[in-house]
Design a protein around this nucleic acid. Structure first.
Lengths: 231, 231
DNA sequence: CCCGTAATTAACCCATTGGATAATTACAGC
DNA sequence: GCTGTAATTATCCAATGGGTTAATTACGGG
């Protein structure tokens, strides 16, 4: 006895269903949502727009992800997951201390430059006080192994006397991320204030060198070590 | 002959008007709007809420500032203006190079820590790709004299041989701001990822020292200069 | 071939919210 | 005191946009 009144869709077009693949559909929604959230923020992103760009119905978004916020969390999880994957390709163990530190700096810088949407997403999540990242079990449990890599580099460098013993892996990681993320995240207000280009290839290259330099000079031990040739 | 129909407000309460001070009212709106925008972003901030908190009618907001976006621009102008004022209190000229650099670092750090709403506002404006700061004549013309101060410190330091000649004032400023802003702006995602406190007085004090250290080691000349006593 | 279930669609709902219209009130200058 | 004007209020409007209801369609297993 559910009965009767049920709304009838228009009866002319049978509306062919495009495909029938749960995982693929979810992945597509996630990708488009990632772009939308990174572009417009949590509030600015529009479910209708996401649906349109993904070529599906809005209802489908809520079918797979129950709400906008849960979709946002899923997007965060995906984005952070990708970063972690990238970090695994960093093999710092084999390098000498200075080379390892510079490589770490350049890798981080390159990653942020190549993934400005990711940086934007992180900024947006911070505007929301990290409320979603906290709610995500995946993300709170996903301890980032990058710290382990840094610790190993530091340990080696310290034992060789090339790196100051008081350097802390966490502090180093914060320092590097601050320098690297800033070039992407605060580009616009900085460029507006100083009419100073941060986006051209030359400016980026210079900044890249500068960050590696800052980092190395920060960690190296005081005994006037090799400044290496930075052409 | 506009005539007749005009909507009549309810006729029981004469609705006493609170005050009649253009500048004061505008200033109050600006202050509340600053808080709201910093808290909730451009889209999240609510005109009704601003009006309620300011104890006025929403219409008044649009009377003084024509639209939400213009209000946001006015808020940005005010916020940046305050920062510039604060920067003027920095007297670096009298200090020796190392002291000047450390003082600059600590001042910047303290300012951002003391004004997280400002940092949030800047982050929000960057999410909007600096579109408002660009539109504001006040802000695009407001060249920040802080660069001048930094240049003078560097010049003095270079002539004394204490600071490397290749250090650039702009790059230094970017570096310092990156380090300083990050501690406020990206606090939440970082804390969530590493379960690592960045908010306690101890953590802040440590970070403050660290940043000064990074900056000084970055600019000082290579001849193993005094590491000074950082107790 | 049939049928249950899961994927997908169409259409609707309604709270929120920038912004607008127009009345009202205070206040300064004559 | 009168009056023009600026400050302020009450009320309304239309669009936007999350989220929902229910119909429809594909598809795999018996």
């Amino acid at each position: 006895m559910k009965t009767v009144s049920a709304r009838r869709p228009v009866e002319n077009k049978p509306a062919k269903v495009r495909r029938r693949d749960r995982e693929k559909t979810k992945a597509e929604i996630l990708q488009i949502a990632f772009e939308e959230f990174a572009e417009s923020g949590l509030l600015g992103a529009n479910a209708d727009a996401i649906a349109a760009k993904a070529g599906i119905t809005k209802r489908l978004i809520f079918y797979y992800f129950n709400s906008k916020e849960e979709l946002f969390i899923a997007v965060l999880e995906m984005a952070y997951g990708k970063m972690r994957l990238a970090e695994e390709d960093l093999h710092l163990a084999t390098l000498e201390p200075e080379a390892a530190i510079r490589r770490l700096a350049e890798f981080t810088f390159d990653f942020h430059q190549a993934n400005p949407e990711f940086v934007r997403l992180v900024a947006i999540e911070n505007i929301h006080r990290g409320r979603h990242i906290q709610r995500s079990e995946k993300l709170t449990q996903m301890t980032r192994p990058i710290i382990g890599q840094i610790e190993r580099v530091l340990a080696k460098g310290k034992s060789l006397g090339a790196i100051r013993p008081e350097i802390d892996a966490h502090e180093l990681h914060v320092t590097l991320n601050a320098l690297s993320i800033f070039s992407v995240a605060n580009r616009h207000t900085f460029e507006a204030q100083f009419r100073w280009d941060m986006s051209s290839p030359e400016a980026k290259a210079r900044r890249r060198r500068e960050i590696a330099e800052v980092l190395w000079r920060y960690v190296r031990s005081d005994e006037c070590s090799s400044a290496a040739d930075r052409s």
